[in-house]
Each structure stands twice: as C-alpha cells, then as structure tokens.
Simulated assay, not measured.
Amino acid sequence: MKLLLISAVVAALCVASSVGLDNGLGRTPQMGFNTWNHFGCNINETIIRSTVDAMIDTGLTAVGYNYINLDDCWALNRTAAGVIVADPVAFPSGIAALASYVHSKGLLFGVYSDAGTKTCAGRPGSLGYEKIDAQTYASWGVDYLKYDNCNAPADQTPMVRYPVMRDALNATGRPIFFSMCEWGDYDPAKWAAPVGNSWRTTGDVSDSWSRIITILEANEPLWKAAGPGGWNDPDMLEVGNGVLSTTEYTSHFTLWALMKAPLIIGCDVTKMTNDTLRILTNTEVIEWNQDSLGIQGHRVKRGLLSEVWMAPLANGRFAVVLFNTDPLLSAHMTVTWAELGLTAGSKYTARDVWQHKNVGLYAGTFDAQVAPKGVVAVTLVPA
C-alpha cells in the first residue's frame, strides 16, 4: 500500500498545475562554497567573511564559484511570531548584514533549512513555517536555499513537503536557487525536476575513495534526468580536505564536473595547497561542467578495473575520460569511436584538459596510459 501511495503522489506531481520551478536559475550547475564538509557546526560570520575574501584573492570567484552558502547550525530558534532567528553569538551582525557583505563583493549568498520539524543538527526546521521562512530569506537577500530532510513526519513524503517550499520561494518574487537534499531516498531524479534546481541523489559524501566510488555508482545511471534548470547532485566536493591524494582528488573533480554535478567547494579555502587551487581552478574542466548543452556525462565502457566516460559538448565536441580504478597499477586504455557513439572515420584533435595541450589527431580510437586511481581527460574537437 505504501508503494502504491508513493506512486500515486509521483503521478500527481507529474500532472500538477505547476509546470516547474520557474525561477530562471540553474541553467548550468551551481558553483560555490558550503560550510559543512570542513566546518560542520563550527561556523560564524568571521569564517564566512574570511572565506569570501580568500575566494576572491585566490581567483576561485573569477572562474565561477559565486555562491557562499551556510549549512546547518546558523539558526538558533524562532520568535513568538514564528520568525527564524540566527545564533546571536556566531552571527552577531545578523544574516541580512552577512548577505549584504557577500553581495558587496559581487557574490551570492545561501542558507540552509530542513523540510522537517528540526534540522539534522537539531536546529529549527521549516515544516509548517515554509511561507514565513521563505519571506524572511527573501527579505535578508538570500539567493540559495539548501533544504534537508531530517526529522520529518513519516506520513509526509518528500514529494509532498518539498513542493510546499518551492511554492513559498516562488511567491516571494525573489529568485532563490532551490537545492533539494533528501539523499536520493525517494528517487528524486524521477520527480524533482518540477520542484528543485538540483536534487541530492545519494547520502553524504566523505573524504574517502571508497565513498566517492560508491556515489559515482549511484549517480551515473541517472544521467538522463539532468539538464538545464535541474541537476543530479552527488553532494559536495571533498577536494582539499586532506585525506586523499592529489591523483584521487583530480579524478574526483574531473568526474563530478563531467557528471554536471554542482561544484560546491567543501574545504577551508583560506588554507589551500597549490595542488588544491590548481584542481579547483582548472577552467577547461569547469567548462565541461558549465557547457551549454547541459548533458550529464556517463559511463560508456567498463572493464574489470577500467572505465570510459563521455559527455557531448557544444560545437560538436566531446568530453572523454579514461578512468583507471586499479588502486596499484597503471593501465594502457583504449576507447573506440563506436564505443563513444562517434561517426566511423571522423577525425578529432584530442586536447588533454589537465596538461592543457593538444596531444594528437585521432581517427577511430583514442588511447593513453592512465595512473592508478587516475584519469586521462580530453576534449575531442572535430578536426
């Protein structure tokens, strides 16, 4: 009976009078910074201001990272009238003032809430307060809402609760990016396009190679659901958090970009290494992510310890990634035009987007030596 109810709700959403989240946002995947992966609940306005300044100084904002987002733990309680109140110790100037500071630097500002009675960290949730919260966020100048799914009533599915906040945000008249975070539990790729600008397809990422591989496996098959205005979200970037190697972080970033995932930085940008900055500011890889076609990259070939991924790009180009999943040994990998779905006999110049150079003219196949856990990533340009 529960499955029948869920199916009925999904069907109703598909024919609802609302034609979608018509806010004009998310034509390409969102890029920015979020506090959770590195700072957790240890956040305050000083950290945010320092982050903004560092992102500008390091050139991160210049390559497209424009959202500065608070995650859980910024809110403390509500007034008697139900208005959400920020933690006055962590944010003594208030959220509106912080948003104003972010805007003064030419960037956009986001907050976090939850489609339940409380957030995952036990702060006030928005269930039952959607309209007043949306109006409050708009009055503060908020540009982005990450909306989690903790502490929700068992008899109200995400398909019921998330559209309520969508409608409340739309009613404010302020375009606010709606990032849905229900962890993929109810298959949002099947129903979320009319509701949010992005939807989490998995549980939380962590700074773990095995976790990144698990998330890749879950997100890859959903590639047809993504497109301009709405994106599959396999969670934030772990690049720079210090556990994985530079090779692993490079692969992580490459595949997230190819999958048209939101590129949301999760490290402390005030303390980045040169390698971290080099990875995060690779404009050729970012260009894949922000390509106007908006087609999510997906796997086209799989061996025992090797994978080939591909995404069509604008102007007849193709992004191709040879991914060696062997943890110890390098591998010589080859992909044919037939496996990529390219026309037999066509010629392409391969540009290595990590070496930032053309590596040859290819007809029929592309091959390269790939390091363990590494990628060779090229843009194929019609010759």
Rank of each mutant, 00 (worst) to 15 (best):
T283E: 08
T58Q: 12
V359R: 11
A225S: 15
K260N: 13
D187R: 11
P312Q: 03
M55C: 14
S126F: 15
D235E: 09
P175A: 08
D57H: 10
V370I: 10
A171G: 14
M55W: 06
F253P: 02
M1T: 13
A261V: 05
W309D: 05
D143N: 06
F91G: 10
G196F: 08
M159K: 00
L127R: 15
Y362N: 05
S251H: 07
A115N: 11
G106W: 10
K105L: 08
V269R: 07
I213P: 00
R302F: 04
G360N: 10
T46H: 06
G364R: 10
S198K: 01
N282F: 01
T157Q: 00
M333P: 03
P194M: 04
L304P: 04
N37P: 02
L145Y: 00
A16W: 01
T379G: 00
L60Q: 12
T254Q: 01
L380I: 05
V15W: 08
G196N: 03
T157H: 04
A192F: 04
W337K: 03
N219E: 07
A311Y: 02
I265M: 06
C150G: 13
I43P: 14
Q30T: 12
A80C: 14
W191I: 13
G173Y: 11
S104T: 14
A86E: 15
N34H: 02
F323M: 09
L108Q: 10
G316D: 09
P221S: 11
P234Q: 12
W209P: 04
L98D: 13
E339H: 09
F366N: 01
V308C: 12
N66L: 04
K373I: 01
T58M: 03
L244M: 13
A86N: 14
E248C: 08
G116F: 15
D143W: 00
P312R: 04
I84G: 07
L127Q: 12
V300M: 08
Q355P: 00
M272E: 11
S126Q: 10
E220G: 03
S210L: 13
D143C: 01
G64M: 02
V359P: 04
L222E: 07
G26W: 02
N151W: 13
H298G: 06
G94I: 12
A62Y: 00
Q135F: 05
V300N: 06
L169T: 14
N77E: 09
L76V: 12
F253W: 15
D72R: 07
R166E: 12
G229H: 02
A226I: 07
A377M: 08
C14G: 09
S251M: 03
E238N: 09
N77D: 15
W140P: 05
I213K: 08
Q296A: 14
L244T: 07
R49M: 13
P88E: 09
D72W: 06
T247H: 12
H103K: 12
N315T: 08
W231F: 12
L293A: 02
N149A: 15
K373D: 03
G82T: 15
I48D: 03
V269T: 15
